[in-house]
Design a protein around this nucleic acid. Structure first.
Lengths: 71, 71
DNA sequence: TGAAATTATACCTTTTCGGGTATAATGTCA
DNA sequence: TGACATTATACCCGAAAAGGTATAATTTCA
């Protein structure tokens, strides 16, 4: 996972005070999936990621790769 | 696929004047994958989508779901 | 400290993605 | 219209994701 998504999901979950099991339940995905996603696994299915993001009012989309920070 | 990504990939590909086979080759993914993605299949792997997006200087990230247009 | 809650890791099974290939459909343009 | 390029659909197979469950590690906090 691109870290960006991974981190976003973890942050939002904690922001709402949810546990991984709770998030998994609400998103309709398996608990293991939430765990793998938050740990940065990137060989996951896009639709499952979107199921989770939708809880936060978001979805996956193309974003520019940020350039080297120190330039 | 969220249409957003699907459309983005298709648009960028044409912008560069690439065919699906050419894009598949450069991205290091199968031709079938490119086709399914551009047709909006959403049960695809995130890492493969990122492989394609990286050719366009982009990656997947969370974006706000746009609200109902007529409000 | 220690107990409870939360998160991480491992194993197994089912489902299905991804790639290759072949063929059909569609689009393009002279 | 016809020839060519491009894209869409269908089939098979191997690899792996997703889920469930169980257990270990970690964190939290009284």
């Amino acid at each position: 996972m691109s870290d960006i998504l991974s981190q976003f999901i973890k942050d939002r979950r904690k922001l709402l005070g949810l546990t991984q099991p709770e998030l998994a339940d609400r998103a309709g995905v398996g608990l293991r999936f939430i765990r793998e996603v938050e740990q940065g696994k990137d060989t996951v299915r896009l639709d499952k990621v979107n199921q989770v993001l939708s809880l936060f009012g978001h979805e996956t989309g193309p974003i520019p790769i940020k350039r080297d920070p120190h330039e």
